[in-house]
């Protein structure tokens, strides 16, 4: 058999994977190994596959993903801190034929924007919400977020998050299960939790995000909410590979993956 050289394989007709054309040429400013880049890529691939890039409007948060508008070749609005769902509500009501999605981190969606998040989900706006949960405030330097795990060391909890003092008086509180909370609301149609630490997880995550956008495009009422458990290796003070391992060992028991609600019906485990 004739020997195949790399030049024979690297031909345009053999291409099986490349970055979506919906992402601009600008390199991501995210830290090496950050899950945000993977989530950006998945969203761009889904929008390209669904062919709705010319009528999509994204709403970027305040946080690490504040510059998301630089990376997507779709229309974007930058909302005030935590107000992305409120902003997306306005856009969707003015242009019901547009595909509107909000992209937020845990400090934005679960801390300062809890009010907007809960009421948008309660009203059942026909939008897609992407929530990247890494359990820490990334951009501001690793402070405790509502989703920080018990015992996790952050800049503001240097001895680990302690929900209560030993005598039972309240201290830092417990990790906020915002996705379970939103699944209880009658306005959410599809609520799921995914991750991006491995190839299999990325494939599942892409399916979930695609479903969340398809529901919106088919004009089915209700919020489509996708939580993505992600890493923050810089503020967890680990390498990217170690952070993905730590995520599987520590984050996933608290934030188990899978669909929580589909077609307005809670999925019982």
């Amino acid at each position: 058999m004739a020997e195949i050289t790399l030049q024979d394989i690297i031909q345009p007709e053999n291409l099986v994977y490349e970055k979506s054309k919906l992402l601009t040429e600008k390199p991501f400013h995210y830290c090496p190994g950050c899950g945000h880049g993977t989530v950006h890529r998945i969203i761009a691939e889904v929008l390209e596959e669904l062919g709705v890039d010319d009528r999509t409007i994204g709403v970027s948060p305040v946080g690490c993903a504040v510059m998301a508008y630089d990376y997507f070749d779709v229309d974007f609005v930058e909302a005030a801190h935590g107000r992305a769902p409120a902003c997306a509500t306005g856009i969707k009501r003015v242009w019901p034929d547009k595909v509107v999605f909000s992209y937020q981190g845990d400090g934005d969606l679960a801390a300062i924007g809890t009010c907007e998040t809960i009421h948008t989900c309660n009203r059942g706006e026909n939008i897609t919400m992407i929530f990247v949960n890494n359990g820490i405030y990334g951009m501001t330097g690793g402070q405790m977020a509502p989703t920080t795990l018990v015992g996790m060391k952050t800049a503001t909890t240097p001895y680990g998050r302690m929900p209560q003092w030993p005598d039972g008086t309240p201290n830092n509180g417990f990790p906020l299960q915002i996705t379970q909370l939103l699944a209880q609301l009658p306005g959410t149609r599809y609520v799921t939790r995914q991750a991006v630490f491995s190839a299999a997880a990325v494939r599942n995550c892409k399916k979930a995000i695609k479903k969340a956008f398809q529901n919106q495009i088919e004009n089915k009422n209700g919020v489509n909410f996708v939580e993505i458990v992600s890493n923050c290796n810089s503020n967890w003070k680990m390498s990217a590979v170690d952070a993905n391992k730590w995520l599987q060992d520590n984050m996933l028991p608290v934030y188990p993956l899978g669909d929580l609600k589909d077609n307005f019906e809670l999925i019982k485990k």
Binding site: L6, I9, N14, L15, Y17, Y30, G37, S198
Partner: peptide, 26 residues
């Protein structure tokens, strides 16, 4: 390079999308 089967696992997990994957049937 001889061991590569073109599964694209690297490409879909790369956070920066820098990897292009090619696959050829023998």
């Amino acid at each position: 390079p001889e061991a590569c089967i073109g599964c694209a696992s690297c490409g879909i997990t790369c956070p920066d999308g820098v990897i292009k994957v090619y696959k050829k049937a023998l």
